[in-house]
């Protein structure tokens, strides 16, 4: 067993883990943060996307021991106490989902994209999210939601 500690959604967390434990399993099973789903488990679909030190990663493709000392943000750490994150609000307002399974990963990947590019074109949004698969929407409303969030966040 290996000792790890990390800040997860603003809270200091630590524990003994098997080196083979995946980050997504640590989040879900050890910390109970089941807002991050396991989709394909092959690093294709992006449903399990979280932020590590502010940058998107697929948490099924990272060992828990690799994030020792890091800051992890999951979908459950995005909202402030009484208000959703603008990207969360935009997905609701633009109906950027149907079944909702890909949504946590889509939102985290969108937050990451908007951090680097606060005002993306439609093409840049599609390119920026191409590591996240949605089998319901055809992506149309997801792209709209990210554009909407970008406008809200930049105050225009």
């Amino acid at each position: 067993m290996t000792h790890i500690s990390a800040t997860v959604d603003g809270t200091h967390r630590q524990g003994e883990v098997e080196p083979r434990l995946l980050l997504v399993h640590w989040l879900r099973e050890n910390l109970g943060l089941v807002g991050t789903p396991i989709g394909c488990d092959t690093s294709n679909c992006g449903a399990c996307t979280v932020l590590v030190n502010g940058k998107s990663v697929k948490s099924c493709n990272v060992l828990a021991v690799q994030i020792d000392g890091a800051e992890v943000t999951t979908i459950q750490g995005l909202a402030s106490e009484d208000e959703w994150h603008p990207v969360q609000k935009a997905f609701k307002e633009c109906h950027g989902l149907q079944c909702g399974f890909c949504t946590p990963g889509m939102i985290m990947a969108s937050v990451d994209l908007l951090t680097e590019n606060p005002n993306p074109t439609e093409e840049e949004i599609r390119d920026g999210l191409h590591g996240n698969l949605c089998r319901c929407t055809g992506y149309h409303n997801i792209v709209k939601a990210v554009s909407h969030a970008a406008a809200e966040m930049s105050g225009s």
């Binding site: 690093s43 940058k55 998107s56 697929k58 990947a109 990451d112 590591g131």
Partner: peptide, 9 residues
């Protein structure tokens, strides 16, 4: 290469 999340790591 791949996608943003993969390129980050």
């Amino acid at each position: 290469v791949a996608d943003r999340a993969i390129r980050h790591r």
